[in-house]
């Protein structure tokens, strides 16, 4: 009997605690438009990164968060929800409340995940806000001890020995797709192998276990600086301002472009006013010189802002491209 009494008292105690909290902490939600106009209303804005702390996506999200805070006038909290190559975090955001306080920071892999059937949805399940960074620093590098001086040298060698040169990438990943495109474009046949993530591939290239691989410049930078690796091409429209000595693949006669957009998206049904507000803030950040210095120092990329409509168009285009190449990616 006494036991029950105690439990009752506990429950009441807790209940009173909660009503107290509710009264002070959370004001009753007003009409949605009014709430949207007030957003962010000093409430913390949570950005979900679908990868672990310490990676490139995490870095870009946190750098953005740092500069967004003073502009939005509220705390911007980055939360890492990793798993299933980014799908776990995406699902969490997709299923959260569309009140503008939760957003997802992800990149093109969201689309690739749908193509390789890791997830069954892509950007169409979200209200896309804007793109903050466009990484077009994808480069192709070889060991400096190898005889290949230009992209053409490598292609010719690959043609001479089909299926012999090792090109490293994770099957079904973005650089795998780039490698397959290169094969199609030049009519060559590489031996595509898995040699782990970006940093593992550096070691493999250094030890001569693989012949070439494609990665963002930032990942290979230490080895390029030390003279261990030779960069043959960057897969972008124009040369990068950060490493202007590297010729594009295009100017060497191979029209291949690779890029990855880091964009912010909200759960479906978020008030457009909120999305506009965030997009405008992101545009402001992308123009800040100290922001540009930060990302150049860490990952050798330049800021590139795309507004909501452009981002949507870009993602739709990319999705179409990936879908068309589905057989090639899944081979």
């Amino acid at each position: 009997m006494r036991k029950i009494g105690i439990i009752l008292i506990t429950v009441m105690l807790i209940a009173s605690l909660f009503t107290g909290c509710a009264a002070s902490g959370n004001p009753a939600p007003a009409a949605s438009t009014e709430a949207a106009a007030k957003w962010p209303d000093k409430k913390p804005f949570q950005i979900i990164v679908p990868f672990k702390t310490g990676g490139d996506t995490d870095f870009h999200a946190r750098t953005y968060a740092k500069y967004l805070e003073p502009i939005l006038g509220t705390s911007v909290v980055v939360v890492n929800v990793d798993g299933a190559n980014g799908s776990a975090g995406s699902i969490q955001v997709r299923d959260s409340k569309a009140d503008g306080y939760t957003a997802l920071f992800f990149h093109d892999s969201m689309l690739m995940n749908k193509v390789v059937e890791v997830s069954d949805f892509a950007h169409e399940a979200f209200d896309v806000a804007a793109t903050g960074i466009m990484d077009n620093s994808y480069i192709l590098a070889v060991n400096a001890k190898s005889p290949y001086k230009t992209l053409e040298d490598l292609i010719n060698a690959a043609k001479a020995t089909p299926g012999k040169l090792n090109y490293a990438s994770s099957i079904g990943g973005y650089t795998y797709y780039v490698g397959r495109q290169l094969e199609e474009l030049t009519g060559t046949d590489f031996n595509i192998v898995d040699a782990g993530g970006g940093t593992d591939r550096n070691a493999a290239l250094l030890a001569g276990k693989i012949d070439t691989n494609v990665n963002p410049y930032g990942i290979m930078k230490p080895y390029i600086d030390s003279g261990d690796f030779r960069v043959l091409a960057v897969f972008s429209e124009n040369r990068s301002d950060l490493f202007p000595e590297v010729p594009t693949a295009k100017e060497q006669g191979y029209n291949l472009i690779a890029h990855r957009a880091y964009f912010l998206s909200f759960p479906k049904g978020t008030d457009p006013k909120i999305i506009d507000k965030v997009s405008a803030a992101m545009e402001q950040v992308s123009k800040m010189p100290e922001y540009a210095t930060d990302i150049a120092k860490a990952y050798s990329v330049e800021p590139a802002y795309m507004n909501t409509a452009d981002t949507k168009a870009y993602l739709d285009g990319a999705m179409k491209e990936f879908e068309a190449a589905k057989d090639m990616i899944l081979k």
Partner: peptide, 28 residues
């Protein structure tokens, strides 16, 4: 010496260094 993280903890250390503009590797 190579910039290769062996586990989740060293991967985070690598991230921490990268963000400071220090890339572990042959020149470290």
């Amino acid at each position: 010496s190579l910039g290769i993280p062996g586990d989740t903890v060293t991967a985070m250390l690598l991230g921490g260094l990268t963000i400071q503009g220090i890339s572990p590797g042959p020149l470290m």
